[in-house]
Design a protein around this nucleic acid. Structure first.
Length: 372
DNA sequence: TAGCCGTGGGT
DNA sequence: TACCCAAGGCT
């Protein structure tokens, strides 16, 4: 048999050992076709691979599972998703975070349906041109869905490779060298399984803290382990402190328990999601008087305070409540009845604010008549 | 290039 | 508690 096309023998040994480990120890995931089924000729559904990869961007596997299952059930293929209402997609995505992903997901589905006749392109270059698909996701879809030899580099693989070769250059500058190393050891017969094997290894063995090196299938090749301290890789630049922003949220409650909601602007923080009226989040440092930002005059009463940590700042919201009898006209807002509130496109921070004023209001609960 | 963009779980 | 981190993309 001809030698493997990889450049050096050590690289071949890494890929071979990793694939053997993957065959025996891979994770079972709702969107994954396991190696035993691939060998029987089962092909992954590109729609499911794409959907899962977008959901998994900066998001844990455990958080994604239930969302993925719900999405596939509600929208079984790219045509169904392309035909969906934007508001339904945002509601289904609520709680998963990074909401531009949901907007790009819908836009991508529409492009695939109309410009690609519902068939996903197979090359990295074509995939990369679609909304919400960057370098990582394009390579992941090309390799996992279409078994093309693409160099997949995510956070797991950055960690595995930087340890394997003891790369001292801090991220993100090290990404170029890391991608080159992945390209060198990429096995051309099973690129999809190789990418998933690297990610499983990073998630279960080559973890950020206290890696389980004794269980690692490629420990014999690991320069960081040989040097004595794998945990110091990957090197990263220092992080900046998060500023604190303050504001107020106004929970207007109708006689029947409905609350007033509005839609946030399409772009920016929590873009396109729903919320109770809020002040701006930098107007004053004293939350006690932000009542001036209320959407209309009423008997606003203090109803608590919440804090929420975003990626680049922390937010402290003073929550106000008013029980409304004569309904004021508020442009671009609507009254959401109690049974609809749990299904609204409410980000977690807004659910916290509502809960502060009306405990239990955002929780889904079984029908009382049916569970007596 | 670096800031913006969520959330929940682990330590 | 405070910090880190997760199958990143966009501007």
């Amino acid at each position: 048999m001809k030698a493997h096309p990889s450049i050096n023998r050590g690289a071949n040994q890494v890929a071979s050992a990793l694939l053997d480990w993957y065959d025996a120890h891979h994770r079972e995931l709702p969107w994954r076709v396991p190696p035993r089924d691939l060998k029987l000729g089962v092909r992954p559904d590109p729609y499911c691979i794409w959907l899962s990869e977008v959901m998994l961007q900066q998001t844990t596997v455990e958080a994604v599972k239930s969302y993925f299952t719900a999405f596939v059930e509600q929208w079984p293929d790219v045509f169904a998703l392309a035909a969906a209402d934007n508001s339904d997609v945002m509601r289904a995505w609520a709680g998963l975070g990074y909401y531009s992903r949901a907007r790009n997901l819908k836009a991508c589905a529409e492009t695939i349906a109309t410009q690609y006749a519902g068939v996903f392109p197979e090359t990295e270059e074509q995939l990369r041109s679609l909304p919400g698909i960057g370098p990582y996701t394009a390579a992941a879809i090309a390799s996992i869905a279409f078994n093309r030899p693409a160099a997949v580099v995510d956070g797991n693989i950055e960690r595995v490779i930087s340890r394997l070769y003891a790369i001292a250059t801090p991220l993100p500058a090290a990404k170029i060298e890391i991608k080159q190393r992945v390209t060198e050891i990429l096995p051309f017969d099973r690129p999809g399984d190789f990418a998933q094997a690297m990610m499983d290894l990073g998630a279960t063995i080559c973890s950020p803290k206290r890696p389980k090196c004794m269980l690692c299938p490629i420990k014999e090749h690991c320069a960081a382990l040989a040097n004595g301290d794998p945990e110091i890789y990957p090197a990263k630049a220092a992080k900046k402190a998060k500023p604190l922003r303050q504001g107020a949220a106004f929970i207007a409650v109708r006689d029947d328990g409905a609350i007033l909601l509005r839609t946030r602007p399409e772009s920016g923080l929590l873009g396109g999601m729903s919320e109770p009226p809020t002040s701006d989040w930098n107007s004053r440092q004293d939350g006690a008087t932000t009542i001036e930002a209320a959407p209309f005059a009423a008997e606003w009463r203090p109803a608590g305070a919440i804090r929420h940590v975003f990626t680049h700042f922390e937010l402290a919201l003073t929550v106000w409540r008013a029980d409304i009898k004569e309904l004021p006209a508020v442009p671009d807002a609507w009254w959401s009845p109690p049974e609809q509130i749990p299904g609204e496109a409410l980000p977690t921070v807004m659910k916290k604010a509502i809960e502060a004023a009306i405990p239990g209001a955002t929780k889904k609960r079984p029908d009382r008549k049916g569970t007596a």
